[in-house]
Structure formats: C-alpha cells, structure tokens
C-alpha cells in the first residue's frame, strides 16, 4: 500500500526559501550593484566629505573617533533596516495580490506558516549578503577593524529581521501598496535620520530620547557600533539583543495569524 500513500512535503519552509533563491538567480545583478554602491557612496560623501567638516569642528572626535568611523556602523544597521523593510512590503504584495505566488504555494502541501518562515529565512539571507558587502566596504575605508568587527554582520541581520517580521505581518493584511509609502515616509526615513546613525541620540531634545530607545534601529545601531568600535560589554549587548528578539518574536506571531487569514479563508 506504500505506493498509494500521498507524499507530504518535508521541510516545506525550505521549499519556499528555494523559490526565493530561484527568483533571485534571475534578478541578483542589479541588487548586488546597489548594495555595493550604496555604502561606497554614502561613506565617501557623508563619512569623508562631510566628515572633514565635522572633524575640524570636533577635535576630540564624535564618541572619541573620527566621523567616518562613527557613521559607518550606524549606516550598516540602517541599510539592514531599509533592505528588510523593502523585502517585507512590495514582494509580499506581489505574492499575495499581484502575482499570487503565495496563493500558488498554498495549493501545494505547503502551509501558510511555512510561507512565513521561508520568507523570513530568505530575508535573513538577503540581509547577510547586504551586511557582508557593507562591512567589506567599511574595511576598505578603514572604518572598522578586521576581524573583531565581523560580529556586526549577525547584529545587522538581527536588526533587519526586527523590522521584517512585523512589517510583513502588516503587509499581508493590505489590499494594495498605498500604505507602504506611509511606512517608508513616517517610519523608515525618520528612523534612518534620528536613530543615532548620523549623530548621537543625546543630541536630540531630551523628551525625544526615550522614543528613540523604543525603536529597533536604536538598538541595532548600538550593537553594530559597539561591535565595530570594540566597545560592547556583554550585559548591554544582551539587553539590545533581547529587544530585537522581542520585536522578531512578536512579528512572527502576528505574521502567522495574518498570513493564514489571507491565504486560507
């Protein structure tokens, strides 16, 4: 009778991940160029160009280092955030509405929860690529010490996932992409500018600072900067990591609900 037993897909989330890899094999060229070019351009313009002005005005450095060295790890965490936010908005809309690839998946033995985990595994992979390229550029600019700064890569991945999980949960509830603009304009862009990437959060008005502490990017920047500068101590690191993991956990729980509601109803 074994021959007639229906075969249930093993490791369904891995199959979802495979789908993303297969698509990326067609589209990676442009994204590799931008993930390399973006840190090179930002570090030379803001780190070197603007940095000359900042350093001349602050002989003691920012947090004790040159502006380039201060800025680079912050940008690393920010670019993880931006990559994650992008990968968790438009591609989700495509899977649910535009191309309905997720709908196609759940007509096979793959369940919505596997779509959630496969998607997150894919975002983590993308984040690893982006963060590694970014760190490579930082080494080339002399903005981080090899090899101790390598720990910044998993920190960046964690930062990105802390955005990806909640945002994809939200994206799965949307019918079209109009609200994504709001996420980027009122969420991602202000975080990019105010969460300690370009200047220490202590520069903000005192009443805004607690708000910054609540955002995942603040903790991501703190971890990434601590790793690059070698100033991280274990207890603070654990607190930052804990906050990020909390965001990821809540995001996954919400995604499991919203993906199921959207795909099986």
């Amino acid at each position: 009778m074994a021959a007639t037993m229906p075969r249930v897909t093993r490791w369904p989330a891995v199959r979802v991940f495979e789908h993303h890899v297969m698509v990326y094999r067609r589209t990676w060229r442009g994204s590799i160029v931008t993930s390399f070019l973006s840190p090179v351009l930002f570090l030379s313009a803001m780190g070197l160009g603007l940095g000359t002005l900042v350093d001349a005005n602050n002989p003691g450095g920012i947090a004790g280092v040159t502006y380039l060295v201060f800025l680079a790890p912050g940008l690393l965490a920010s670019s993880a955030m931006q990559t994650a936010a992008f990968e968790s908005t438009y591609p989700i809309m495509s899977g649910m509405v535009w191309m309905k690839t997720y709908e196609a998946m759940v007509t096979s033995p793959i369940a919505p929860r596997s779509v959630v985990f496969g998607q997150l595994a894919w975002v983590a992979t993308r984040l690893t690529i982006v963060a590694s390229v970014f760190l490579g550029v930082m080494f080339a600019f002399g903005a981080a010490t090899f090899p101790s700064a390598l720990i910044a890569v998993p920190f960046a991945v964690l930062t990105g996932l802390a955005f990806a999980a909640p945002i994809q949960a939200f994206s799965a509830t949307q019918k079209n992409d109009t609200n994504f603009n709001a996420i980027f304009r009122f969420g991602i862009t202000p975080l990019f500018i105010f969460s300690g990437t370009f200047f220490p959060v202590t520069q903000l008005p005192i009443y805004l600072q607690p708000i910054a502490w609540l955002t995942p990017l603040y903790h991501g920047v703190a971890l990434s900067r601590g790793a690059a500068l070698g100033t991280l101590d274990l207890p603070t690191a654990l607190i930052h990591i804990g906050v990020l993991i909390a965001f990821i956990a809540i995001g996954i729980a919400a995604s499991l609900v919203t993906f199921r509601r959207r795909l099986v109803s």
């Binding site: 603007l50 900042v54 920012i62 304009r185 862009t189 500018i193 370009f198 200047f199 520069q203």
Partner: peptide, 18 residues
C-alpha cells in the same frame, strides 16, 4: 515630510556637530 525630516535631522541635529 521627507525633506522636512532631513532638514530637522541633518540640518539641525547633525548641524550641531558640523
């Protein structure tokens, strides 16, 4: 709002350092 955020953050926030 996007240019406004940049103005407040970069112009004034980062501006203090510059």
């Amino acid at each position: 709002f996007e240019p406004l955020f940049y103005l407040l953050g970069i112009g004034f926030g980062l501006g203090k350092l510059v």
